[in-house]
Every structure is written in structure tokens, then in C-alpha cells.
Design a binder for these strands. Structure first.
Lengths: 146, 146
DNA sequence: TATTGTTATACTCTATAACTATA
DNA sequence: TATAGTTATAGAGTATAACAATA
């Protein structure tokens, strides 16, 4: 209850940072339970929608080319993604999930969502709606947020 | 505007994950501009309040002892923190900011807060109040969130 | 015996610079 | 020449296991 009072006096920026730490740890825990690193889970979840080229992957992850090469190498070595040569531009390649990778992407995404929903369930329903709405507007206002 | 519509249809869990990515990148950018890694900035900011022992630092960072030893080694090597033997329990030590470390901690914290406030400024004031309140209640509900 | 912290080791993550191959 | 991606190298971050010193 003392904690609750302290939290309620926080500035928005500090609250955002603390929520970020919370979500990061949820993400890390779920990843670990699925024998993945947070970065690997993020790659799998990014590829869940559709195959993505290395350059676009760099932009989505805010990483240098060589960092993404290594990241994709490691998940590929584990049989979770495959590289396909792009027939239109033969310099490029598309990275896509394998069946195993797709299964893991779904499971980890569901586990993260479940844990966050569990935490959010502590809030009254109207608060959840307000929170989701405000976050959505914040994301819409931020450049390059998705 | 299409992005805004898409964002507004998101689930709360997905919105939380996306805001987390946004804040992480803000944190990483600010760290880089101050020639620090995100982890080093986090250590400095944790120590801003008061000196902390290694074991407590492990709990705050959700890391193993040896990981924290290395992290503290690197910021100590840069003259940003110092280790002091605890006189009550001579196995333990307190890690505390140096004058340089304290200055950097203040600057990075201010820079992160400024950037997040700048993003939040895109929201109408009532939204900001609602968001801060809802995040505070979410943090209060989460175990070990602070 | 239990706890605090470090050391040894191995792997992942990341960036910079140099490179290959295609456009 | 410019772009897509890889390789080489180096340093930071992390975990596990074994260890030292103190409680």
C-alpha cells in the first residue's frame, strides 16, 4: 500500500520506464522457458506476419546488418527460420519461419500476452480500456513506432 | 492516419509490448549519446538514490551474481562507480556512484525523461493524466515491479 | 553450513570495417 | 557506383559452475 502510494505520485516518464522494465522481464522469462533469448523471440514474432528481408529486419530491430546476420544465423542453426534467395533481386534474401519456428512464435506470443493480460486483470475493466486507448494514441504519435 | 487506425485496434498486451520497444530504443539512443550501454545507464540510475550491495543489485536487475560483477567491473573501470567494503558484514560491499557517475546518472535520466515527455506531449493533457494513472495502477498491481 | 562476492569459461549480442555479389 | 548481405574482429552482456572469504 505504501508502494501503491509511491507509484501513484510518479511522473509519466518514470512510469513508462518502469512498465518497460516489467514487460522486458516478462518477455525474458517467457523466452527462457521456451529456451530462447529475448532477441530470438523478437525475431520470431516479427516474422510471424510474413517473410522479411535482412535490410527491413535491420530497420525493424534498429540493428546493424552484421548484428542481424548473426541473429538470423543462430535461429537458423536451430531450425526456426530459413533464408530464401529473392528471385527478383538476387543480392537479397527473405527470412521466413519454418514450421517449428512458426509454432514457437505463436506459443511465445501467446504466453507473453497471457502474462500481461493477467497483470492487467488486476485493473478495473474501465481502466484497461483507458490504458489501451492512451497507449495506442501514444504509439500513433511516436515516429517509427511500428 | 492508417497507422493510427491500426494502432487503435490493438489489444492491451500488444500495445504494452510496442510501447516497451519504443522506450527501449529511447533508452538505447540516450545511452549511446552518452557513450554508455543501456545496461550501464540502468545501473547508474539505480544507484542514483543510494549505494546498493551486489546481492540487491542482482535482484533489482534480475541478473545472476557473476553478470553483475562484470557489469560493475566495467562501469568501475570507467570511474563511474566505486566498491566500498561493508564494515558490518565484511563479505559484502556497497557500490556507489562517483562524482562523474552521479553527473552522468542525472544527465541520462533527464534526457530519457525529456524525450518521453516530448513524445507524450503529442497527447492531449487529459490523456496524459489518464495514462499516468493507469500505468501507476498497473505497476502497483504487479509483483516486484519497483 | 550458509551467504557474499569473484573467477573461469562459454555463448549470445552488438558494432565497425572490409569484403563479395548483384543492380 | 550503389545496394544487399556476409565475414572478421573486438568488446559488452549473460549464465553455469567452481571457488574464496566471512558469517
Amino acid at each position: 500500500m505504501a508502494a501503491s502510494t509511491a507509484v501513484s505520485e510518479m511522473q509519466l516518464a518514470d512510469a513508462l520506464v518502469r512498465v518497460t522494465n516489467l514487460v522486458q522481464h516478462v518477455f525474458a522469462d517467457v523466452s527462457k522457458r521456451h529456451d530462447l533469448t529475448s532477441q530470438q523471440t523478437q525475431v520470431l514474432c516479427l516474422l510471424a506476419d510474413r517473410p522479411v528481408g535482412m535490410t527491413e529486419l535491420c530497420q525493424l530491430l534498429y540493428l546493424e546488418k552484421s548484428s542481424v546476420t548473426g541473429l538470423v544465423d543462430r535461429v537458423q542453426r536451430r531450425g526456426l527460420v530459413s533464408r530464401c534467395r529473392d528471385e527478383q533481386d538476387r543480392r537479397a534474401c527473405r527470412v521466413e519461419l519454418t514450421a517449428d519456428g512458426s509454432r514457437l512464435a505463436e506459443r511465445t506470443h501467446a504466453a507473453v500476452a497471457a502474462r500481461l493480460d493477467e497483470l492487467a486483470a488486476e485493473l478495473p475493466a474501465p481502466d484497461r480500456v483507458l490504458l489501451a486507448g492512451a497507449l495506442a494514441r501514444l504509439l500513433a504519435a511516436a515516429p517509427d513506432a511500428g
